[in-house]
Design a protein around this nucleic acid. Structure first.
Length: 852
RNA sequence: GCGGACGUGGCGGAACUGGUAUACGCGUUGGACUUAAAAUCCAAUGGCUUUAUAGCUAUGAGGGUUCAAGUCCCUCCGUCCGCACCA
């Protein structure tokens, strides 16, 4: 018998959809809109399984929403600027623009082969000057709105390559190519004032009820609002003071030292005079710029000659340290240390022999064991704290604040962990920052008439430094203001800049203005955004901020870009290593005759646990290979049927084969049916047979249940429900009257329900069923509410919570009646004999539980 | 280090507001078809005792609340994601 010819079929329907422009949409005021968006890919070369998963999820949502009547916008484009293009340029001597364009061409072909329902007429590529010119205009508007500014900031500096490295290019404090110990270097850079919206971004995230809770919590913690006190510690025999931010001013009487960040201005001043301190500060500057690197580094400090006065204890002086774990970016860049009640301070105090004073006493045990083995940060009552003694923490905070504020040595402050967004990158392959530096006029904006500032293409790539810096023709210009010789800004934007507004541009890809308000009004916001959990904070938070900034500049009228968010887990695969420990591709190994994994030459293979697919571990499967061997529908079905979208998915060959088998089964049900499917459904016959009647009910229930599962994005459950239905249809007895009616009804329903997941197969089945129009143009099936209701239910009988029997009873039977029937069950009767029922629990239509 | 999640058969997973744990699929075993294999179809399938009936036991580990816990609470273990210049 012949198998389903996916190659011809998939090509046929892809062609049909394209010719009929099935996915092209325009605003239609008569129809409700739905905007589905998947995170656009970085064109790294070829699509990988993560893309296949992401875009399959989006496609199912898009096709389902279209079927239930929405005007669906579903666009795709390219996040085309970024570091890999520069790495490729260095490695293979190919221009980033050329490399990127080639990758886009390949990946677009691959995506088209998946049968995704994109409106390709809206395609955008962020490295296209037609795209980034608008971004430059937006930046100029941000400058005018006081949302962009320049300040000194740190970068990772590779002293051998003489270039700035990204955090991922710093491995264990060393440059990834040069291996040289990296240094921190201060550069003047552009920042966007995301901090202006800290409060708003925090309060508004509570309203995003269609976002996963974990993403909302992560953003809340990232923004990190904390209320506290900014306290002055006067420096002994000096006019200066150290400002310290603390959320625990109640522990002030337990303060035994102060510590400054190594990059605190006072630390730098001290370093100028003291070579020991200078050496220490230098060493701190060797730790990378990433927070993880700083926080995991051993906590070290150095004592300075400074002392500060305790603001509450007359005559008490505290030593001042410089400590590597104090961050300049948070609070004031200085802390007071209370070792008894802060674990980091505690460890620091032990290490440097600093006094530890307990000031909070837990309610129980009443005495903390001394010496303390760790800091106590729980609730309790103040001790050793003068006028605060006996108060609880909250009360003490209030009293301290009042006293210090009254004396003028402190003020209340709300602090955010969120820092302003640094958007300058010392790289070539990014959007040029449209400003000119003039010795006389300072920073001058590039006039709008001269936009876009495009990237020069006659460049030379060297390991050392940005080609823009070494390009005199591009860099040297005359000042737009005074016409004197000036230089362009050679930094380019962070690539998060492009991805912070692309979703809005999709609504009006051809607009001459950055954004067309009319189109945006119809399409925005994105109703369902889908992408990896790794973007939970940065990309999503930047986009939320950027939308607000655009609103402030009149480019958009909404604040929140994404109403719904679905985060998808990763695609994983087993890992394989040969005897020497070298990673092997899944293609290079197979199961030998004894069931053990081996290489093609018969040597044994170590099978490792399943991990995220990555090129470095070679545990990758090329989507194109799967699509060539089994077809796009099989790949899509596998992606959807096993794991729920937010969990990691394990790629297995047997799972793929299972999906392929089911596709063939469906196809056979219409091409070689054991029942006549040509009987058209005009009016429903009155079905007498109870089995067929139940099957008909199953069909209606499946419509209802699958719709519910699709609404809540439980695609794996939707697939399971459809499989159950087709299993039931297969067992229809062809000899019964009306059997072929029920069968046809069932198969039609299954075809329509599976269509969002298996669009090619569904069209083919639909055609075989004799339809004269596409599934795409067919509305979602509807169900008969009366057929969803059951007349009987299974009630479980328990004794002391253990199941001892069950019974099939009419629905909504009263308690007493159910009880009587339950007691008559043989097994129950036996077990209840000689026992008194103390209590009976009855859950209607579910359970009777006898407690004896 | 900090923040966030996850953990259910041999495997991926299902179980709505605490109420029949293991739906659906994969794998395995047995059978049918075949000269044979593949494909397909049928049946069985958490573990233990048992012919079956039936019983005991099981949702990372340990404790608790409850008539009843995968679900709620506490402690611990393991795995994964993010940490501001990867995208």
């Amino acid at each position: 018998m012949s198998r389903y010819n996916f190659k011809a079929t998939e090509k046929k329907w892809q062609k049909t959809w394209e010719e009929k422009r099935c996915f092209h949409v325009e605003p239609d005021p008569k129809k409700e809109k739905y905007y589905v968006l998947e995170m656009f890919p970085y064109p790294s070369g070829r699509i990988h399984m993560g893309h296949v998963r992401n875009y399959t999820l989006g496609d199912v949502v898009s096709r389902y929403k279209k079927a239930i009547g929405f005007n669906v916008l579903h666009p795709m484009g390219w996040d085309a600027f970024g570091l890999p293009a520069e790495n490729a340029a260095l490695a293979n001597n190919i221009a980033p623009a050329k490399w990127t364009a080639e990758n886009i061409r390949t990946m677009k072909q691959q995506l088209k082969g998946m049968g995704l329902s994109y409106d390709w007429t809206r395609e955008i590529s962020t490295c296209d000057p037609e795209y980034y010119k608008h971004e430059q205009k937006m930046f100029l508007d941000f400058m005018d709105a006081d949302l962009a500014y320049r300040k000194q900031s740190w970068v990772n500096w590779d002293p051998v390559e003489k270039t700035v490295l990204a955090n991922e290019q710093v491995i264990d404090g060393k440059g990834w190519r040069s291996g040289a110990q990296i240094e921190k270097k201060r550069l003047s850079q552009w920042f966007l004032k995301i901090s202006k919206y800290s409060e708003e971004l925090l309060t508004d995230i509570k309203k995003l009820t269609k976002w996963p809770d974990r993403v909302r919590t992560m953003q809340e913690n990232w923004i990190g609002r904390s209320e506290g006190l900014k306290i002055d510690f006067p420096v002994v025999s000096s006019d200066e003071k150290i400002e310290v931010f603390s959320t625990r001013p109640d522990t002030l009487f337990g303060a035994t030292f102060c510590a400054l960040s190594p990059t605190h201005p006072m630390s730098e001043k001290l370093a100028l005079k003291d070579p020991e301190i200078a050496k220490f500060v230098d060493e701190c500057n060797r730790i990378g710029t990433s927070e993880a690197a700083i926080e995991t580094a051993e906590k070290v400090g150095i004592l300075t000659p400074l002392e500060v006065e305790h603001p509450l204890i007359e005559g008490k002086k505290l030593p001042v340290f410089i400590a590597n774990f104090v961050l300049m970016e948070y609070g004031t860049g200085a802390i007071f240390g209370c070792p008894a009640h802060d674990q980091r301070d505690f460890e620091f105090a032990i290490k440097y022999g600093i006094e530890i004073i307990q000031v909070v006493k837990p309610k129980s045990p009443t005495v903390l064991k001394l010496p303390l083995s760790e800091a106590y940060s729980g609730q309790g009552v103040l001790i050793n704290s003068g006028f605060l003694d006996g108060l609880d923490i909250e009360g003490a905070k209030k009293q301290v604040a009042e006293k210090l504020i009254a004396s003028g040595s402190a003020k209340k402050e709300i602090n955010f962990r969120l820092r302003d967004w640094g958007v300058s990158r010392q790289r070539y392959w990014g959007c040029p920052i449209p400003v000119i530096n003039c010795d006389d006029c300072g920073i001058v904006k590039v006039p709008e008439s001269q936009l876009p500032v495009t990237l020069p293409e006659d460049i030379e790539f060297k390991k050392t430094s940005n080609p823009l810096v070494n390009h005199p023709n591009w860099k040297n210009v005359s000042c737009p203001n005074c016409a004197k010789p000036a230089t362009r800004e050679t930094d380019t934007f962070d690539t998060f800049f492009e991805s912070s507004w692309y979703f809005a541009r999709f609504c009006c890809p051809d607009s001459s203005k950055p954004l067309d308000l009319g189109s945006l009004k119809y399409w925005m916001p994105v109703d369902q955004y889908i992408g990896g959990i790794e973007h939970a904070v940065l990309h999503l938070l930047y986009s939320r901020f950027f939308t607000r900034a655009l609103k402030e500049c009149g480019h958009i009228e909404i604040s929140e870009p994404f109403t719904g968010l679905m985060t998808q887990g990763m695609v994983c695969h087993e890992t394989y290593q040969d005897k020497a420990g070298a990673w092997l591709f899944p293609d290079e190994v197979h199961k030998g005759p004894t069931g053990k994994w081996e290489k093609d030459d018969g040597s044994s293979v170590e099978v490792g646990r399943s991990q995220k697919m990555s090129k470095s571990k070679k545990n990758v499967v090329d989507p194109e290979k799967i699509i060539n061997e089994y077809g796009a529908d099989t790949a899509r079905l596998f992606m959807l049927s096993d794991s729920p979208p937010d969990r990691d998915l394990e790629w297995t060959d047997s799972g793929v084969e299972g999906a392929w088998r089911y596709i063939n089964k469906l196809w056979k049900m219409v091409s070689e049916p054991h029942l006549d499917i040509n009987q058209r459904l005009e009016s429903e016959p009155d079905i007498k047979d109870s089995v067929l009647k139940n099957t008909l009910k199953s069909i209606h229930k499946t419509i209802n249940n699958v719709s519910k599962e699709l609404e809540s994005f439980h695609f794996n459950k939707a697939v399971a429900l459809i499989r159950e239905l087709t299993n039931e249809l297969e067992s229809i007895d062809p000899d019964k009257p009306d059997a072929s009616f029920v069968y046809r009804k069932g198969i039609e329903t299954a075809t329509l329900l599976i269509a969002p997941m298996l669009p090619h197969l569904a069209e083919e089945m639909w055609e075989k069923l004799g339809a004269d129009h596409l599934v795409l143009d067919t509305p979602w099936p509807s169900y008969e509410p009366a057929l969803l209701e059951d007349h009987t239910c299974t009630i479980v009988v328990q004794i002391n919570g253990k199941i001892r029997g069950s019974m099939e009873l009419p629905i909504d039977l009263p308690e007493a009646e159910v009880q009587t029937i339950a007691m008559k069950i043989e097994n129950v009767q036996k077990l209840l004999d000689n026992k008194t029922v103390q209590k009976m629990i009855f859950v209607p239509n579910k359970i009777v539980n006898f407690v004896v």
